[in-house]
Write a protein that binds this DNA or RNA. Sequence first.
DNA 1: CAGTTATTTCAGTAATTACTGAAATAACGA
DNA 2: TCGTTATTTCAGTAATTACTGAAATAACTG
Lengths: 191, 191
Amino acid sequence: MMNLPPLVQSFVLHFGEMGSRWGINRTVGQIYALLYVSPEPLNAEQIVESLGISRSNVSMSLRELQAWNLVLLKHLPDDRRDFFTTPDDVWQILRTLAEERKKREVDPTLSVLREILMQKPASDAERHAQVRMGEMHSLIEQLTTWYEDVKQLETDRLATLLTLGAKVTKLLEAKDKIVSLGRSKRTNDKG
Amino acid sequence: MMNLPPLVQSFVLHFGEMGSRWGINRTVGQIYALLYVSPEPLNAEQIVESLGISRSNVSMSLRELQAWNLVLLKHLPDDRRDFFTTPDDVWQILRTLAEERKKREVDPTLSVLREILMQKPASDAERHAQVRMGEMHSLIEQLTTWYEDVKQLETDRLATLLTLGAKVTKLLEAKDKIVSLGRSKRTNDKG
DNA sequence: CAGTTATTTCAGTAATTACTGAAATAACGA
DNA sequence: TCGTTATTTCAGTAATTACTGAAATAACTG
């Protein structure tokens, strides 16, 4: 049913299985995996043959992948069929994934929270709930602000930032030590 | 069916709807939301009444929330019923969420990739696929390394790191400028 | 225009996932 | 021990989601 090199097949099957955890379905996951490892763009019929699924399923799944911006449509000269690939650059893929997941999984919640926080509570229970929602809201806002910030970075800067991760921490720790030293010194001065 | 303060109800219903996008189901989402905004721990029967769902559904959903470590089990003196809450600290919730999603959504892929990368390709197609999988693998490894790094941070350090986000970037840019100035100076020296 | 090929749509069905009620288990007190 | 209350399990069913085949649309060619 699925006639692929074994190594590719493992990959495709894994993406299919993971599909449900990623919030996409099996077919969408498999098609993405197939396109990702394919040396050149594939058309719908090739996908049908590779995965052993119906033509209409391929059509719908490709549409979904396009909605996610995870797939590129290509055309060959003198061939009116659609061919599909994924972007070459994995960092670009990461960016797209982050953006789309944010759009689907975070933004709606943020806007619901904002809306609820506008209303005035009519009881103690509602007052408490609003406080909790406020905490959630500001956490998400902090995270999205950071994200908006770092998503602008070009690939190599982003990579640097990642490898730095720990060291920035170290820096902060060092700074804290100095500050607290300064504080204890001043405290001593007072006493 | 669902008798809650309107403000709480909006929140609970939203979490229910989002459930599917988060990879949990409606009931699990609703229960989590309810516990999150509730001023004190709730027992199963209270959840049944608040959400209008069956006792067995509550039992299964709480079990799933516990598997995610998103819910705390409490006991009141002289009461053998189980009461449930969410942790107070939203940052702690974030950490848990990140850890669990990584465990479920990233780690399995990483290990499949590693396994496939060990095998030797039997064709050009497999060779190409392996290169692509290698790219994906090292991207994920970079991300998880960064994550392992920052997840150790205490809350206020993590917050600092987030607000810093942009500024670290600025710093990197400044560094780059200085380096490139140095380079062009040296280039000029040569000419 | 009619004929051909590529793609999409969609009603019906298959497969999966969520939920319930009833029965089983467990943990206690009398 | 038996009775009571809390919780879990699980087979059956409801609800949702995924997939297919057939028909419709679209885009081209001679």
